[in-house]
Computed example of a mutant assay.
Amino acid sequence: MDAFISGFLTSLSLILAIGAQNAFVLRQGIKKEFVFLVCIICAMSDAILIVAGVGGFGYMTQKFSYLESVARYGGGAFLFVYGIKSFYSAYKMTHALKPQSFATASLTKTALLTLAFTWLNPHVYLDTVMLIGSVSTKFGTNANIFGAGAVSASFVFFFSLGYGARLLAPFFEKAVAWKILEFIVGVIMLALAFMLIFSV
Rank of each mutant, 00 (worst) to 15 (best):
F64W: 08
F64A: 14
S136W: 05
S69R: 07
Y73F: 14
V135F: 10
D127Y: 06
D127S: 10
V70W: 14
S69N: 15
Y88V: 15
S69W: 07
V135L: 12
A52M: 12
T61R: 00
F78G: 01
F102N: 01
K98R: 09
P122G: 02
D127R: 02
V129M: 04
F102C: 07
F80V: 03
G53Q: 02
A116T: 14
G140L: 09
T104C: 10
L120D: 04
F87A: 11
Y82A: 03
F117T: 07
A103H: 11
S106F: 11
G56Y: 00
I132V: 15
G58T: 06
V81D: 06
Q100E: 15
I84W: 09
L131G: 00
S101W: 07
D127K: 02
K138P: 06
S136G: 07
Q100N: 14
Y59Q: 12
V70C: 05
A71V: 01
Y82D: 04
K92Q: 10
G58A: 01
T128L: 04
Q62D: 11
T114L: 00
V54I: 10
T104A: 11
M60C: 06
V81C: 13
L120K: 04
P99T: 13
F117Q: 02
L120T: 08
G53V: 01
K92W: 05
Y91D: 08
M130W: 11
G75N: 06
F117I: 03
L113R: 06
E68V: 09
F117R: 00
A90V: 07
T61N: 03
K109W: 03
W119L: 14
A90Q: 05
A77T: 13
G76C: 14
G56H: 04
L79H: 04
Y125N: 05
P122A: 02
L112H: 03
A105F: 13
G74F: 06
G56R: 03
V124N: 06
S134K: 01
L126T: 01
N121R: 04
M130A: 15
L107N: 05
M130T: 09
P99M: 11
A71Q: 03
L67H: 01
K63L: 12
T94Y: 11
S101Y: 08
A90N: 00
Y91I: 15
A77V: 14
L131D: 00
N121F: 03
G74S: 08
L79T: 03
L113V: 12
G83H: 03
T128P: 08
M60W: 06
V124F: 00
G140P: 04
S136H: 10
N142M: 14
P99L: 11
L97R: 04
F87N: 08
